[in-house]
Design a protein around this nucleic acid. Structure first.
Lengths: 193, 193
DNA sequence: AGCATACAAGACAGATCGGTATCGTGTCAA
DNA sequence: TTGACACGATACCGATCTGTCTTGTATGCT
């Protein structure tokens, strides 16, 4: 295999970039493969060589989004050392992101809504993502030595998802601006003693 | 106008019933008008006499859902007299509903996700619904004499929407089973003093 | 009786969808 | 130089979508 005969990474990246923007802004079913190819400046056949079906493109986008979320989450933890402070830092970041221009909510919620069949890969990736987030909260809650860390993880996950919903449906400003203080209340509800 | 020449209420109701079930179970774009008509035992033309377009059917379904939600909310308030107890009662009902078989999450979230254009009537109805819910929480919070009732309303709205997301994405059981105690924590966070 | 209307059944139109096939060009390696 | 391959452009296919039209029947008011 030589360089010329190998599908180029940049072409694939361009397709994923375009698909990400369109899927996030307009949803999955509302975006056609023709538009993705056209806006990427890529022939349709070329796109189908990189992604054999639209579902493959959707899943690739979702996995890319999951990676981006993980990076964002790690950064949001900041430099705090106390696990409780880490949680508050995350929700402060959630509140800030939800107020930002580019935030249109959580794409995994949309994925699960548009592909309700639990067998569909786009649904599976979305659900797995939520489970991962819940697990992160559970770990942080356990590290913090808080009472009933699993229940607290559930509460924090709901709060975060509610913030994404608020960002999507209310635009700016939206109820998510109070998400950090809400998280602090949930934490206080699980203090020992 | 006689009875025979007037579009029958039962035909319309049957269409709306079928559309409700299909839209809620599978989403809006994934359900075709042909299937709604067929499963209602109604001719396509007859359906288009009652609902001139699919969007009209979608909006009629959403308004019907909004009415159903309001009824459910009123019942969920229960017989409590203290506004704080009313709020807790609502979230207890949210937790119970989210664990029930028939709950697939919040259809207004799906509507806003599938119709992201804020000009689209399906988006407008969904957003208006969320504003109404937020207003109810704000009223209850104010009646309870709690500190910063508007902020508390935002927090409660996020929590409730997070519970619906959890029901949709996790099935049963799901994190929403802890939504009532989370609501209590949020309330404690707004106690005076 | 006669007319207007609701309705069923089904063909149909026009657009759009995901996905495929064809052909021509440029590029790199052997 | 030649051949394998990525890629662009574009036509195309079958399915499906929303919405319309036609035809025939039942029903109830005038």
């Amino acid at each position: 295999m030589n360089a010329a005969s190998r599908p180029s990474r940049s072409t694939r990246d361009r397709l994923l970039e375009t698909a990400s923007r369109l899927f996030y802004e307009r949803g999955f079913q509302a975006v056609g493969v023709d538009e993705i190819a056209a806006q990427s400046g890529v022939a349709k056949m070329t796109m189908y060589r990189h992604f054999p079906s639209k579902d493959d493109l959707v899943v690739a986008y979702l996995k890319r989004s999951e990676n981006a979320f993980c990076d964002w989450f790690e950064r949001a933890l900041g430099t705090e050392r106390d696990p409780r402070d880490k949680i508050v830092a995350v929700f402060t970041a959630v509140g800030a992101l939800a107020q930002s221009e580019q935030c249109l909510g959580c794409t995994f919620q949309v994925s699960a809504a548009e592909y309700p069949d639990p067998v569909h890969p786009a649904n599976r990736v979305a659900v797995r993502h939520k489970r991962e987030v819940r697990k992160r909260f559970a770990t942080l809650a356990a590290e913090a030595g808080l009472r009933d860390p699993d229940a607290l993880a559930d509460e924090l996950l709901m709060l975060m998802d509610g913030a994404w919903v608020a960002a999507r449906m209310f635009g700016r400003p939206n109820p998510a601006r109070h998400v950090a203080s809400a998280a602090e209340s949930l934490l206080r509800g699980h203090r020992r003693g």
